[in-house]
Nucleic acid binder design. Structure first.
Lengths: 254, 254
DNA sequence: CTAAACTGAGTACGCCGTACGGAGATCGGC
DNA sequence: GCCGATCTCCGTACGGCGTACTCAGTTTAG
């Protein structure tokens, strides 16, 4: 594994960077690069070779430039990772003119996030900036979600809780899927192949006598296909839970 | 940020390591260390200084030993990280003699995971071995959860989906909380302080006119306390969703 | 035209994971 | 009791990393 932290150092600088708040500057030579090109190159690199392959030298090489040139535009690697997260979050299309029920809105929100996570498996390996370092992508996400749960009589805090719950579910499941995907990529075997290969070894340790419930589920083949299909199932259950709560809630005071 | 991948190289070797399947070996000098002591030292280090501080050299130093000595017991850093994950997962106490409803069982399961995640914030930054590389800790977790949803008429696949959904929710929310905790630790300011400090900067970018829904929730102060309190709320909604589905399901064929 | 301001990058430092090989300890077989 | 096999421990070294420092070269304001 490798782990990633995001958002250290000066928050003001990072926020300005996220929102591209920089006047073009006179006096010097014209910039040959730019934050956008650097971030795009880093995202490509991560998509193709994984997060571990993203180093300042490799990103620079991809741009035909010396490693240290990147530091003209980006304070450091942490900030670059932050920018990458916000950039791919902005990819998801959440129609600005969306009108629909809160449930349809949250469904769209959740699926958009999931699509991004599947397209960029390295995303879930990075800590979210969350509300701490909101860039345009993260902000657009949040705005869409909040709009979906507006006008149904929730307090602001309840709105935040509901959205956080859906976000949490999507992130957690995406991370589990991404782990499996990463394992497959690294070992060059598919999920089924890996499973077939690992079964004899697992049999040695996970005996029916010690883990009867797990063994039963396992022996029935419930783990033989990747859990991705369970995403929609879980999403609907999450939304059902919210719906029941909303119904119960509006019924009381109404 | 830093990201972590887990479970590369030889799965058989790693599995054997996770289950400590090693005969004590005659012939050589008595081992001075041991997998358990190495893992414990690494976990301590991660708890105290964060995941980024976990290097082979630092772990070895903490044990009063040369860096390369660790490789006698552990094939590499990836495997050590895997062992750390399984070790802390095993910490959670899930009573073996638990009897209760499926809902009580899943609640206990979810809270146990959350307690571990709060005690070891670095955990969520690591990919889960998941089902790919199950050690004793992960297996005990899964067994408890599966037992909780046994005997309520679910198919094995449905059991797996339900458990995966709860696990996903807990993981996702824990990761969001951990990110905030990490930001606080690194910047040496509390959540409220950070928020107060960042507000003027955010005001510049997140204008009411462009993000009315988000702005409203934000201006109402819904983000001024950490979202940890929302965990129980979301958990209950998740369980409500499952309950509604189970009721609807058993009602039809019954 | 000059000087200020900026871009771009070479060099270097201190970390990291870990391959390699050797020194010393320990024990089975004789 | 001894020897060789086998094990533990670890010093050295290599290639890669993030990035501090420094300086050369370019562009424009005045």
């Amino acid at each position: 594994m490798a782990s990633a932290k995001t958002g250290r150092s000066d928050p003001a600088r990072t926020l300005a960077l996220l929102w591209r708040g920089k006047e073009p500057a006179a006096r010097g030579p014209k910039p040959g690069l730019g934050v956008d090109r650097i971030v795009a190159a880093a995202v490509e690199l991560a998509d193709e070779e994984g997060l571990a392959a993203v180093s300042m030298r490799k990103v620079a090489e991809r741009l035909g430039v010396g490693a240290m040139s990147l530091y003209t535009y980006v304070p450091g690697k942490d900030e670059l990772l932050n920018l990458m997260v916000d950039a791919v979050l902005a990819e998801a299309d959440r129609p600005a003119d969306f009108t629909g029920t809160w449930r349809e809105g949250l469904e769209l929100h959740a699926r958009a996030d999931r699509a991004v996570a599947l397209r960029h498996p390295w995303l879930v390996g990075l800590s979210t900036p969350g509300l701490m370092l909101m860039g345009p992508g993260e902000t657009a996400r949040a705005e869409f979600a909040m709009r979906a749960v507006s006008d149904i009589g929730l307090t602001p805090r309840e709105m935040a809780d509901v959205v956080n719950m859906v976000d949490g579910y999507v992130r957690g499941v995406a991370q589990i899927s991404a782990d499996i995907g990463a394992t497959n990529r690294e070992t060059d075997v598919g999920y089924e192949d890996w499973w077939a290969q690992a079964t004899p070894m697992l049999e040695r340790f996970i005996q029916q006598s010690r883990y009867p419930a797990l063994y039963g589920v396992w022996a029935a083949g419930a783990f033989e296909t990747p859990p991705e299909e369970g995403f929609e199932f879980g999403l609907q259950r999450v939304l059902d839970g919210i719906e029941a709560w909303i119904d119960g809630r509006t019924a009381v005071p109404g």
